[in-house]
Design a protein around this nucleic acid. Structure first.
Lengths: 222, 222
DNA sequence: GGCCTAATGTGAAATATTGGACAACCCGGC
DNA sequence: GCCGGGTTGTCCAATATTTCACATTAGGCC
């Protein structure tokens, strides 16, 4: 089964952001294939599923090491592990959720957070009516107590699900608490020190994309 | 106030996907600025907020027309309209939601869908226990009836929020119904005919991104 | 009305990413 | 142990995107 040990070398070259995005897609596809019982896959086959070029895949993987077997392809299970390790998601990350609205509650209920390694270990809000409420087994804590709690619970990532007008304040609390990264679901840009990584999530951007692509097609010149 | 009428020319050049993504960000930022009462902005100021290069912004906009005023900048209200029109989101799009789980329910409750012009006018599921249930004023309909309903309700976009194993079947129904685009929240790639546009949404990709960026920073060589 | 300031729109240079081609090499069969 | 089919890893060319630099022009002031 595991006839081959992947070798990671992590060249300290710059890695394109697009590569990281694609690696996440590869993991998704590979996990589905694994679930269906496939054990080995070639870059060509994987490429067809992901709608990318086969050399693209080989190159993306090459940034991190040699995970394939010439003449054979990639052992799916090993490849999943190798990619996850490369991306830093072969471990768990403790997260703080700030803002208990619709979206925040949905995330708390979403079991996949835990299976993917992102454990929400602290839930915060500034609304006195919400503080003390128990959600998915966790007590909602006042956002002002972020500094103490982040240290106590060893939290590295903050998830902002507040309304836009309160997102920056939430970010400030998180930064003061010494968080390393923020995933911001609020539709605002944040201003944070350079050493804090921010990712913006707004699925209306995806809706815009579809709308645009449909609009383009329906233009006179196709 | 509106001293200038934007001129759109929509060059039929290829437009980079990254440009479309950024335009969506510009709209987000501009709408927040407008809410705060700002009326005019320069590419330099907008660039600082969005953390991009000013010429990047000017070039992105240039794909679609000349929306600025030399020596002055951009009139925010006009610019928002111009970008939205360019992206095809200056109108409403009727959408079908397929799959009534946690995420589907959250989207239905999410008022912003409507304000952004994406109206969910049909809700579908294949679970007999869910069919007939009323959610946010809408009756859950059997997925098999998609073909008739899509035509009846003039639906152009499908939103898939089923579990991964049922996503492809949902996509098939939508394709048969003659849908133009799909936003897929299920963690699977879909196989659809070339004329249907698909956008994949998986915010764990964003979590992966943060995790990776933090991991990189903590590497010995920084 | 002409001049000055300021910020756009755009061609050209720099940079980054992608795709193609092929040598390297693994595995199974003989 | 060697040979052939098959697929990777990687170099290089092609393409795409970003950034720079500046000519152009709108608007305000005298």
């Amino acid at each position: 089964m595991h006839r081959y040990t992947p070798v990671a070398h992590i060249k300290s070259e710059h890695i394109p952001r697009a590569t990281i995005q694609r690696l996440a897609v590869y993991v998704q596809v590979l996990e589905n294939l694994k679930r269906d019982g496939t054990e080995v896959i070639s870059s060509e086959h994987l490429a067809r599923i992901c709608a990318v070029n086969p050399s693209q895949i080989r190159k993306d993987l090459a940034y991190f090491g040699e995970f394939g077997v010439r003449g054979v392809g990639y052992y799916i299970e090993d490849l999943i592990s190798a990619i996850k390790k490369s991306l830093g998601v072969d471990r768990t990350w403790n997260c703080a959720l700030v803002g208990v609205g619709n979206l925040g509650r949905a995330l708390l209920r979403h079991k996949e957070c835990r299976t993917r390694g992102f454990n929400i270990v602290g839930v915060f809000d500034c609304d006195p009516f919400k503080i003390g409420e128990i959600l998915a087994g966790q007590e909602v804590i006042c956002s002002r107590r972020l500094v103490e709690k982040v240290k106590e619970l060893d939290i590295e990532i903050g998830i902002i699900t507040t309304p836009p007008e309160r997102a920056q304040r939430a970010a400030n609390y998180l930064v003061d608490a010494g968080i390393k990264g923020i995933v911001n679901f609020a539709p605002t840009r944040l201003s944070v020190p350079e050493e804090v990584e921010v990712e913006y999530v707004d699925f209306f951007h995806n809706f815009f994309n579809v709308a645009f692509k449909i609009t383009l097609r329906e233009l006179p010149n196709g």
